[in-house]
Design a binder for these strands. Sequence first.
RNA 1: GGCCCGUUCGUCUAGCUGGCCCAGGACGCAUGGUUUUCAUCCAUGAAAUCAGGGGUUCGAAUCCCCUACGGGCUACCA
Length: 509
Amino acid sequence: MERKVRVRFAPSPTGPLHIGGVRTALYNYLFAKKHNGDFLLRIEDTDQGRFVPGAEEYIIKSLNWSGIIYNEGVGKEGTHAPYRQSERKEIYKQYADFLIKNGKAYYAFDSSEELDKYRKDAEASKQTFFYGIASRMQLKNSLVLGEEESLKLINAGTPYVIRVLIPENEEVTVNDLIRGAVTFHTSQLDDKVLFKSDGMPTYHLANVVDDYLMEISHVIRGEEWLPSAPLHVLLYRYLGWEAQMPEFAHLPLLLKPDGKGKLSKRDGDRLGFPVFPLQWTDPSTGEISSGYRESGYLPDSFVNMLAFLGWNPGTEQEIFTMEELVDAFSLEHVGKSGSKFDPEKTKWFNHQYIQAKSNETLLPFVNELLAANAITSEPEKLLKIIELVKHRIYLMPDFVPQTIFFFNAPETFDEKAIKDKWKPNSAEFVADIKQVISNVSDFTAEILREVVHKHIEANQIPMGQVMNALRICIVGSGMGPDLMEILALLGKEEVLKRIDFALCTIKMQ
RNA sequence: GGCCCGUUCGUCUAGCUGGCCCAGGACGCAUGGUUUUCAUCCAUGAAAUCAGGGGUUCGAAUCCCCUACGGGCUACCA
């Protein structure tokens, strides 16, 4: 069967896209690219009540940042436009009507209040209300009212919905690319609403119609859709599209790092890691949720990490570029069980990526970070500093504490460092070193190293102690890269100044 | 409650057609080494009786059944 691969990511703009959604988009993208197919973005905004301003824009921005680029869809109108379901409103009604005409759907007039009451009553007696085979003949719909009566009600302006007529006593099998054949009995399916009283289709109808019209070949979506997959299969059948029905793949869910349940927005706040690709400000409450980008993750590391949540290449390679992911991706290697999200490993991925980046690539980011701390620097110097510290960085903002002492002289000195490393004769050692250093004219790391080592050897003083003490004076604490490199970068004048300041300040502390 | 899906180190997972697995890799953790410090890096190690119990088989993490546990769905939400 030579069918062109066309997949879609179809979020609804009810809020920011969380990482589970990004992963779904990613798998769709990888699958499409792998098979030289199309990847489309469709916005499923059929629920007007839940529409959140800015969400659609956020989704698009997030995908762009992640490098998950769709080649057809909202904002990139192709041959199947429009791609926003609210703009395709007129399309759906005719299919609902078609189903009614063919006896596969019917009008229902029960109000939400009435249905709520049925549900409550059922719950009270520990049962579940089910609009379907067993109950539909006792309810208010065209099945019991008859066509004539129903049309009269509709013409009189009575609100109505259209529901599918689930067939009795049948088995419906969904062939899932990840789970194999999954069979449902129609007695377990209810007569889902296909068309709402506000004139909009529900997900089920819109989804099937659009996937058919847009010639989607594979539906790759979250596992939460598996229970409604038989309904979708039935719909393809009823609409006469069974031959064009896409293949299904239901992805396992992303779970909370601790405890149980699927990952939610709350977990991020609670455990201190972002659940959204980009920072998001809730338009109604003003509440801000952190994003991977703003927290200092690189997009390719973010994508690499996401790819590995539920998929593996079957080899021991873990670091993949997007191109390599495309090449290695296959649905067969997607796991069946949900994955707990691991913030620690996410950091590790980022660390790997930062180390692999060239200093030039990192430069603009570091520049921006430092600018936010009122520091400006010549690129040449900054490039050297980046080279010195980048292997110590896990998140981009780490660059600030790791580089700030190159620009700002310490004003205070880390108490713990002094307690551990500052000995009674440290001041004397440092003063001697200062003397030695001040005579160096070619202030490079190599020369300094040579001179200092020579001095230490000649005077038989403990190297560790001297270096530690000097570091405290220069950096203000016991951390940082090679001291001689730091000295060279700071320059003689600054170094001598810092030593003088440290010597009199530490004495007073 | 009903239906469906799942269950290998703390976590992500390899293991797909049974023997090469008294289970491999990675994160994290521990120890040691490198280093003038903190990190990095390197090495080593602890860590899963393959959810439990029954089968099938010469042989099962791998096949079958049951149980337990976890998850999803059960809206005029997607």
